[in-house]
Simulated scan of single mutants.
Amino acid sequence: MKTYVRARARRRPAGGFLAARRLRGDRGVSILEFTGFLPVLLLVGMAAIQLGLIGYGVNQAGSGARAAARAASQQGGPPAGEAAGHASVSGWLDPDVFTEQGSELTTATVTVTVPGVIPLFGPYEVTRRATMPTDD
């Protein structure tokens, strides 16, 4: 009876055993790449949030200025305009409302303070102004 000894096959084509043996040394590289890139991702995310907050502050300041100018021109006085300006802006933005009433035009100026999200960058002040004709 003949005994056949099978020779061990060593596969060397791409994707074979030798390529798999070489890849074992690359374990953990992806987590290192992610860890190195994570601060950049966080900074970009925080910058996007900061831009969103600034846009919201601009929107709120514009709405407050229009409301203050409208109320001051129709109801005849800066106190009514300042109250309307404070009421139309979110309280956490800490609005500063100033109305000036002339004989023909009423102008309202609203300044809000947008908090800084990124550490090292302080709060931002946004100012908007609106002018309406004074009702007699």
Rank of each mutant, 00 (worst) to 15 (best):
L120K: 10
A20I: 07
G81E: 04
V117N: 03
S103P: 12
D94T: 13
T134F: 09
V44K: 10
R66Q: 14
Q74N: 01
F121H: 02
M132C: 03
I49L: 14
I31Q: 08
S73P: 01
S103R: 11
E82H: 01
V97T: 06
A7P: 07
A87Y: 02
V44N: 06
G36C: 13
D135N: 03
A67K: 02
R27W: 02
T131P: 06
E33C: 04
L93Q: 11
E125R: 15
G28N: 09
R27E: 08
T111P: 02
P13W: 05
Q60P: 00
A14N: 07
V29Y: 04
A61W: 03
L38H: 03
E104L: 09
G16I: 06
A71H: 05
F37D: 01
V29S: 15
R24E: 06
K2D: 07
T134C: 10
T113A: 15
P39C: 02
T109V: 15
L42K: 01
I54M: 12
A84T: 10
G85H: 04
A7D: 08
L93W: 02
A130T: 11
G15E: 08
E104C: 03
L38Q: 00
F98V: 11
G91A: 15
Y4T: 15
A71Q: 08
A67Y: 01
S103C: 11
A108N: 00
K2F: 04
G91F: 00
A48N: 00
L42F: 07
G102P: 00
A83T: 10
D135K: 02
G76F: 05
L23K: 03
G52K: 12
V58G: 11
R24D: 04
R21T: 12
G28A: 14
G36P: 00
G76N: 12
R11H: 11
T127Q: 14
G64H: 12
G64K: 15
F17S: 14
S88H: 10
Y124H: 09
R66W: 05
E82Q: 13
S88P: 00
G122Q: 08
R128E: 15
F121S: 03
T131I: 12
V58L: 09
V97R: 07
E82Y: 00
G16F: 09
A72F: 03
G76V: 10
I49C: 05
A71T: 06
A20Y: 06
G85W: 10
R8G: 15
S73E: 03
A47N: 03
T35I: 04
T113E: 10
L23M: 14
F98I: 13
V44I: 13
V5R: 13
R11P: 14
A80M: 05
G36L: 15
T113V: 14
L41N: 07
L93R: 13
V40I: 14
E100Q: 13
V117T: 10
G77C: 07
